[in-house]
Every structure is written in C-alpha cells, then in structure tokens.
C-alpha cells in the first residue's frame, strides 16, 4: 500500500476498509416485519369496520392500538430487540414514531418528570411533528387557492 497523504485519500481508503451492513438480510427482515406490522394494522382496521366504524375512525383506532402496543413493548425493553432485528421494518410504521417518543421519555426520567420526561420526550420525534404539521399547513394554504 502506498502512503496516504490527503484527507480524501484517507476517506476513500476507510470506506473501502469498513464493512458494509448486511443489506440484503436487513431488507428482508425490514420487509417481513414491516409487512407484518401493517397486516396487523389491517386486521384491526377490518375488525373496526366489521363492528360498524367508518374509515376515519377505524384508521385512528389502528394508530392508537399500534402506538399503545409499541409503548408497552418499549417499556418492557422488547422493542429495541425487535428494532435491532427489523431496522426500518419497525421504524417506518407508526410503531417507530411511538418508540421514538417513548424511549427518550424513559431514558430521561432521571432528570425529572417535567423537564426530563416532558421536555426530552420529543428529542427524536419532535422534528417529525414539526415537519409533518408544517407541511400540512402549507398544503392547506395552497389548497385554498384551488377551492
């Protein structure tokens, strides 16, 4: 190997030396777990409709149930094991959003229930709400031009 002189050379060399994540295995796991979580959501949805709820309410029930289950699994220290296995499979569904709120809430409990739990709860999920809600406001304003 010839001596490395520049930062660029070193970065290229490190990229070559660093092992990649096992992407095929990860994608397979993500597909399987992600699909499974969505299917569970679908079954809950079907059940709500079967009980006579409308589309919007059913959809809300699905979110609430999946969020509640994720919160419990996070509290029981199980969600992080699922997450390690599934990667995006548990991150991308609404379960990942719930986990990203519950995990800092538990972690920062040691800083108190107001500024610790209450304040740090949104350290990861906060941006999701900021960007999601802001986009919806912009879209709503644009929509006024067309209605």
């Amino acid at each position: 190997m010839k001596p490395i002189e520049t930062k660029q050379e070193y970065n290229d060399y490190v990229d070559k030396k660093s092992p990649n994540s096992p992407i095929f295995k990860n994608c397979f796991n993500a597909f399987f777990v992600g699909g499974l979580i969505c299917s569970i959501g679908q079954i809950i949805m079907d059940f709500c409709k079967f009980k006579g709820m409308d589309e919007t309410i059913s959809s809300t029930v699905v979110s609430i149930v999946l969020i509640a289950v994720s919160a419990i699994l996070t509290g029981l220290n199980i969600f992080n094991k699922i997450g390690k296995f599934a990667g995006a499979g548990s991150l991308i569904p609404i379960t990942g959003f719930a986990n990203s709120i519950v995990s800092p809430a538990i972690e920062y409990k040691s800083e108190g229930y107001i500024m610790g739990v209450g304040g740090k709860m949104f350290t990861i999920a906060g941006p999701v709400l900021v960007f999601g809600i802001s986009s919806s406001v912009i879209i709503g304003i644009i929509a006024t031009l067309f209605i």
Binding site: N20, N26, F79
Partner: peptide
C-alpha cells in the same frame, strides 16, 4: 447517541 430503548440498528463499524 440515542436512548437505550430506541429500536435502532448499530452499523458494523
């Protein structure tokens, strides 16, 4: 990094 309960994956590095 992240809270311990977060379900993230650690890269091989």
């Amino acid at each position: 990094r992240f809270p311990l309960e977060l379900g993230n994956q650690r890269p091989p590095t």
